[in-house]
Computed example of a mutant assay.
Amino acid sequence: MYAVGIDVGGTQIKGGVVREDGAILRFRSVPTPREGGEAVFEALLDLVRSLLTNGEGVAVVGVGVPGWVDGRTGVVGHAPNLGWRNVPLRDRLARALPLPVAVENDANVALLGELWRGAARGAEWVLFFALGTGVGGAILAEGKLLRGARGFAGEFGHIPVRREGGDLCSCGKRGCLEAEASGRAIARRGHEAAETGRSPYLAEVLAREGRISARHVAEAASRGDAAAREIFGQAAEALAFVVGGLVNALNPERVVVGGGVSRAGEVLFAPLREALPRYALPEFLSPDLLLPGEHPEDAGVLGAAYLAFTEGRGARGL
């Protein structure tokens, strides 16, 4: 039995044909249309159809979406980075394919991917942070996804880290973690450092490529660029503030940080480990509490496939 797992991101839509043992047989990605709305749905549908062409016998489809998703109904209540509101995604895809479809928040499915084949394997209490274009989060409690009353639990990116001021977040509020520690926030601050001349390395990148990404800022920081290191230090401090509060509240076995920004490695994790004891109770900290995700690029694809396998068989209790 095979599944198609889809991870819809603010920058890319990734998909793969996944076997029941977790092997990804084929992987593809397409840019997320900047105009949002219906264009994103069409790009998503085209990607799924392209993955169905080799005749592996795909039986189910799973999709992770950034935003507020009711996994019971498959309705995307609000995905601000995609321009979606009240989109009945599961039913629309199921009619168009036609195959059984499971839909869930993207951070939830990424946590399932790390639980199935990654850094959360074997744990029952996990906090998962997805650092990408935005900041997502998911909670595993007693081995089950904690979804909340309406399915929206785990919106760590919209926990305030500033009482006043702060940059504008995609949710419309200011001072959220997402506005401080997301790939978009890091890239924006990198662009400012390039334009003001605080980072000669990033100024050269901007002149050559016309844009600054979080990856460029990570490269600059790894080369010792002071402005880039400061940018990652600010992001790590904000992240540690939220991680510490949640560790104190939930006492997890592991805190897994995944998503594309986690590929920055020690540029992110060194200041994060340094800052975390300022906010988390020492009794709750352990050497193996904070871990990078093992699948920063494809945890969402793996988790969406896992969700499809279990939901397609009528399994409950995740």
Rank of each mutant, 00 (worst) to 15 (best):
R198Y: 06
F241Q: 13
P292Q: 09
P271N: 06
V243M: 15
L177Y: 05
L290T: 06
E266R: 05
E266P: 02
V217N: 12
A181G: 05
I231A: 12
A221C: 09
E209R: 15
C171I: 12
T196Q: 12
L246H: 06
G244R: 04
T196E: 12
F232D: 01
A270T: 09
S286E: 01
A270K: 06
P287L: 09
E178W: 00
L202N: 09
Y201P: 02
P200L: 12
G190T: 08
G210N: 10
E266Q: 13
R184M: 10
L202P: 07
A193W: 01
A207H: 09
A207S: 14
E230G: 15
H191M: 13
E178A: 13
L276T: 04
A194T: 08
E230S: 12
R189H: 11
L202M: 08
L290W: 00
G175V: 15
L289R: 00
I231V: 14
A280C: 14
E192V: 12
E266M: 05
R174N: 10
F284D: 07
P292A: 07
T196F: 00
E178K: 06
R174I: 11
E266D: 13
L290D: 05
H216P: 05
Y279K: 07
R184F: 03
V217C: 13
V257Q: 00
I186M: 07
P252K: 05
E253H: 04
L268T: 03
E274F: 08
Y279A: 11
D167I: 06
E266I: 04
G258Y: 01
P292C: 10
V217T: 05
V255C: 01
V243H: 03
A249G: 14
E219F: 09
G244H: 03
L206T: 06
S213I: 05
P271M: 02
G260Q: 03
E283W: 13
R229G: 10
V256M: 03
G260D: 03
D167C: 11
R162T: 10
C176V: 10
L290G: 02
L289I: 01
D167Y: 09
I212A: 09
L268N: 03
E266N: 04
Y201K: 11
I186T: 06
A264S: 11
V205W: 01
R229E: 13
Y201M: 12
K173S: 15
L168M: 09
E180P: 02
V256K: 01
A179P: 08
D288K: 00
G210V: 11
A194Y: 00
A185F: 05
A181Y: 02
L281H: 14
E204S: 14
E294G: 08
A264Q: 03
N248C: 14
H191I: 06
V243F: 04
C176F: 08
A220V: 11
P252T: 02
A194M: 08
A238Y: 03
A236Q: 02
R208T: 15
A207T: 12
V247P: 00
G233P: 02
E266V: 01
P271Q: 03
V205T: 11
L290H: 04
L281V: 13
R174G: 10
E266K: 01
Q234G: 14
L177K: 08
H216N: 14
G258Q: 02
L285D: 08
G265C: 05
I212D: 06
S170N: 12
A280N: 10
A185Y: 02
